[in-house]
Nucleic acid binder design. Structure first.
Lengths: 113, 113
DNA sequence: GCCTATACTTTGCATTGCAAGGTAGGAGGG
DNA sequence: CCCTCCTACCTTGCAATGCAAAGTATAGGC
């Protein structure tokens, strides 16, 4: 799976993390695995953890530490009401962008051959 | 048409401009109109012109100035071979990102009600 | 004891979108 | 003739974000 360039990810990643956490409580390390499984490629720790902390400070997600039997403690995040609101505003913007890009890409496919 | 947040546009815009110029020679001011028509919202001049200059320096596009009957000179851009290559590498990355996001958004639609 | 996988944090840099301001031509109204 | 608007381009400086790099720490296998 090819790596998605940093600049393409910009801004999208916050929405992606919100949507992942919305599916059920998770922790940073697991989020990284989930992103890879979804096709986002390997998003480095130096991206994920600072972003989670920022979102926590903004009140979009909240955290609780729990012990793990297979390693160090995990910091489990879950969505707050503000996080729900953020998702509700993110999704349509993303869809708008995706549609606009789709128009360009499809138009290109037609003309390029 | 709602405005797409800056952070979502990051990186995407360069690809969008390449695809627009690939459809046929255009100039900055017209690109702005085209973006709006495609659904990208109003992308400010302070975004478009610096980006076009950067892409020109990188050799992805080339420019020629021509007079206009209805106003100041226009700087027409057209794609170079390097620009074609850039499109060829951009499009699959974008599609990868769009697919990964689609999985998350669709999953959300199912669970949310 | 050492190495690997797991798990989180912090610092500093590079890139990019954009607000704000500047320059300038042509057309129309006052 | 001046003023305003639309057209058309450029530059400066700031803010946001991804990420490399380095550090800390637990658990298990060799």
């Amino acid at each position: 799976m090819a790596k998605i360039p940093s600049q393409l990810l910009k801004g999208t990643l916050e929405g992606a993390l919100l949507l992942i956490i919305a599916r059920g409580e998770t922790y940073g390390y697991a989020v990284q695995t989930t992103l890879a499984e979804l096709g986002f490629g390997t998003v480095p720790e130096g991206t994920i953890y600072p972003l989670l902390l920022k979102m926590q400070k903004q009140g979009l997600i909240a955290a609780e530490r729990h012990a793990s039997k297979t390693g160090p403690d995990r910091k489990y995040y879950h969505l707050t009401a503000a996080g729900q609101t953020a998702i509700a505003s993110f999704v349509p913007r993303w869809q708008q962008l995706a549609q606009a890009m789709a128009r360009l890409v499809e138009a290109k496919d037609e003309t390029s051959q």
